[in-house]
Design a binder for these strands. Structure first.
Lengths: 358, 358
DNA sequence: CTGTTAGCGCATTCAC
DNA sequence: GTGAATGCGCTAACAG
């Protein structure tokens, strides 16, 4: 037998008839060994069921001896409850989404739901595939990041018959429930704040295209603010595909200053690019905020502890997760009683945090 | 019907008998509508099976019309193939693990395996629970980060009957397969390199305790190097529970210099704490590397683009993922033919990258 | 290329 | 508090 990996061969119980090993033991094996019916084992293994202490003890012992592991796959088929929800996030390298996931986990676990994660890499196509595969596993609910999806994805989610929550956005046409905020509004607020501090020529650093929909929403917010405030337009440096890296932030700030020497401030699509920009200014000998002020988005750790500390928009990612988790628990519980909750939208707060970089 | 979420009500086909809606359609519904047997539908839905083009077209049409979604849960039960592997990582906010996951995904998806993620938050207890729940879903294989686990976790994995791969470590007593490197050796190499550059009083910044096992391995490597090189001992600043934050890196560098003013270099358990230390030096007006050299671990983006750029140990996280993915594909394929591969250990390279901070 | 039969492992439903 | 029968939705194995 291969080292460490194979099924442990059990000595057969004297008078017990057990299936040839190498197979995982089933409930029937446990039942035989404990001298009870399969149904009793099933009951013993879930809390909140009435079983005599003695019987339960015998069953637990048999489970231990056989190394029995419940097969959820069969349970799900039979009970039509999979006990998990899925959350799809763009990236697993992002403290914002990490906090959100932590929030979801904390809430749903209390209700006995497991959270399964998938990441889309900011790609609509990847999201589409992921939604398809996830639905095949029959989740009890599904949480998506962002409010724009392929038509096929929308159709699949709409007819999946489980609660759907979109987070981190304010979709104009939600699939069902929403927990989030307007990325455009948040960015607009940031630009207005900089204007209030006296900055009069403000540039924008972000990605190209619409792949990161939250990123392009932020660009829209910037554009609106510039228009409202009558600031000089056109100061946009668009780099490649999102997510924009620190390195690209550095490149962008050089280009911004080269193309429009009069700029006195730059807002960046995220703290990562803002950080890259600030570090590049160090290297170039440009004082921040003396020569140019720089602000980011997301309140990442790197913005909080950079020198100078970077002005940003904080969105309380953890709360988004908690709120989505609570909403999901409510929706799945209702769903189980055959009730479909009316659409709900929960707006989460954001706030501009001014620091040394502006 | 609730807005957007419920099953789309279909008009019943004229002579077709379909189940009352509100339920998800099953293969039987598709079969009836396409005028074929259930088995033929099953075949049509997986590639590599021989079905006449015409029949397949009818089936695909029926699937579309009904909005049918395959139920993997039933398929898994019947075929004993779940088509997924699980990877458990400590954190979903870490570019190293993110790269590793990307590597795994890329490889296993080619073989039609889906990757499901779980995160343990660096907690052995959370890992234990996660392993239990994951095994209940019958993955075809499981990838764990790190080489230390609770005895119960080990037992469960050993008897699960599926391939197990530990990554990012060099366990003294592996559960089964391994793809990784020695964190202690890597840190030792870093200290030796600094010594080669003339640094003679080197401190260590890291977490307390053993919760981050890779972190404590790195500390061991540091201690060994200091001893081998005959450097002054005891220069260790231990902060709280891992993972150590940027903020803690800043606090630590102050304490290090306060307690041992003679230190001329500091190695940090990760690039994040190194970054925090470098930024704090900026604030304190301590030149890096003039007053003190600082090095990190992991080759994170933040180390690459900080000013000054931070010396680090690069471990090629993406390759670890690819190698683990390839190993997993081999192991699951063998497993399906009833073969258990002998234990394998694949050592992945690391290298010290010297930058401006030393 | 297509259909029939059987059963995967469990939980629901009803007995007792 | 416990047991027996039944079926969840699908695929393996075989037949044609």
């Amino acid at each position: 037998m291969g080292p460490g990996s194979a099924v442990v061969t059990k000595t057969k119980g004297a008078l017990q008839i057990e299936r040839p090993s190498r197979q995982q033991p089933t409930m029937a094996d446990v039942a035989r060994r404990a001298g009870v019916s399969v149904m009793t084992v099933s009951r013993a293994l879930k809390r909140g069921t009435s079983i005599s202490d003695e019987t339960r003890a015998r069953i637990v012992a048999a489970v231990e001896e056989l190394g029995y592991v419940l097969d959820q796959t069969a349970g799900t088929l039979s009970s039509k409850r999979s006990n998990f929800i899925a959350a799809l996030i763009p990236s697993i390298n992002n403290s914002n989404f990490s906090d959100t996931v932590r929030g979801i986990t904390e809430v749903v676990e209390e209700s006995g739901l497991q959270l399964l994660l998938g990441y889309t890499d900011y790609k609509t196509k990847a999201e589409e595939k992921l939604v398809e595969l996830t639905l095949q596993r029959r989740p009890e609910g599904i949480i998506l990041t962002g409010g724009r999806h392929s038509p096929l994805t929308r159709r699949r989610l709409t007819s999946a018959g489980v609660p759907v929550i979109e987070i981190w956005d304010d979709p104009t046409d939600p699939i069902e429930h929403v927990v989030g905020f307007s990325n455009a509004e948040a960015m607009r607020a940031l630009v207005h704040r900089l204007h209030g501090r006296g900055y009069r020529d403000i540039g924008f650093i972000g990605g190209s295209g619409e792949r990161d929909t939250r990123g392009s929403d932020r660009r829209r917010g910037y554009l609106r603010a510039v228009e409202q405030l009558g600031l000089p337009p056109g100061r946009i440096v668009a780099l490649g595909e999102p997510p924009i890296t620190m390195e690209q932030g550095g490149i962008a700030i050089r280009r911004l200053i080269a193309d429009w020497p009069s700029v006195d401030a730059a807002v960046c699509v995220s703290d990562l690019s803002a950080f890259g920009a600030v570090m590049e200014c160090h290297r170039q000998g440009w004082d921040v905020p003396g020569r140019i002020a720089i602000a980011g988005f997301g309140d990442f750790e790197v913005a909080r502890f950079a020198h100078p500390r970077i002005t940003t928009v904080s969105v309380d990612a953890f709360s988004i997760g908690q709120a989505a988790g609570r909403m999901m628990v409510r929706a799945t519980e209702a769903s189980r009683s055959g009730v479909i909750l009316p659409r709900q939208t929960e707006a989460t707060p954001f706030r501009v945090i001014e620091r040394q970089s502006t």
